[in-house]
């Protein structure tokens, strides 16, 4: 397996996938780095990639407000699967070391290999599920006084 495929297989998002699937994903992947303050995604612009964070922190922002941060070992971006535009701004906070998965290439690979499509879709749904769970807790504003 290539170094990239090994790196992908070591990431929690993709851990446990078969070597075949990892090779298919690696064919869509490239190493990327962002410097502090660099814009990773811009609301309204075409969303063409998923970023698998290896090291560093990305702030998801709505206007000036940080909605949430995405950190080491987490994943950012799945809009290319749906309407193809980013729904938040994403800005690197410090150095960020990530793997970029090209949305168009991955979409094609998922169509070619339905088992890959199924496996990846499930993992992306799990991300969405976790993010939703956090949003629920957050919406309760549990540290406020006298709710």
């Amino acid at each position: 397996m290539s170094d990239l495929a090994n790196a992908l297989g070591a990431h929690p998002f993709l851990a446990g996938l078969s070597d075949v699937h990892l090779a298919e994903i690696a064919a869509c992947a490239s190493d990327v780095r962002f410097t502090s303050g660099q814009v990773v995604a811009k609301e309204g612009r075409p969303a063409d990639a998923t970023y698998i964070l290896r090291k560093g922190r990305v702030a998801l922002k709505a206007g000036p407000h940080v909605v949430e941060t995405v950190e080491d070992d987490e994943v950012l971006g799945w809009s290319w699967l749906f309407d193809g535009v980013w729904h938040v701004d994403a800005v690197a906070v410090g150095e960020v070391d990530a793997i970029r998965l090209d949305g168009a290439l991955l979409d094609a690979a998922m169509h070619r290999d339905a088992t890959l499509g199924h496996a990846l879709s499930r993992r992306i749904l799990l991300l969405v599920h976790r993010r939703l769970e956090r949003a629920r807790l957050r919406s309760l504003d549990v540290f406020g006084v006298a709710r």
Partner: peptide
Amino acid sequence: WDGPVGVVT
């Protein structure tokens, strides 16, 4: 604050 933003879980 440039640390993590999100819930404690």
